[in-house]
Amino acid sequence: MAKTWGQFVRGWMTKNMELPQDVMMDLPRITMIGQIHIYIENHRGLLAFSDKELRLLLKQGQLLIRGKAFVIKTILPEEILLEGKIDSVTYITDTD
């Protein structure tokens, strides 16, 4: 109850006070450059990594990136820069 209340307040604040969502709601900010680079901020850690697949833990749910020839160019606690040929970016949420 408290969590949903908090989320409601944040949602209302971002809507009415024009604050960026990623800051307010701990959502990932994903920047892609064509198919070759993907830059994800605000992740919560690596779940799986192979050259065809990268699975990241988010605050809510997971992010699944598929493609070919993946190389993690940089990895920091909350940021990751992935290089390769990206085919798809999928959100996986358990609530669905």
Binding site: G45, L46, L47, A48, F49, S50, D51, F70, V71, I72, K73, T74, I75, L76, P77
Partner: peptide, 29 residues
Amino acid sequence: GIERFINALTRSGINIWNVKNHGTQSVTF
């Protein structure tokens, strides 16, 4: 536990880069 290992490294402030997968269960960085 490669992924766990990488997470542990990044959280303790160790910089790693050029993480590449080599076959199953092995990476180089």
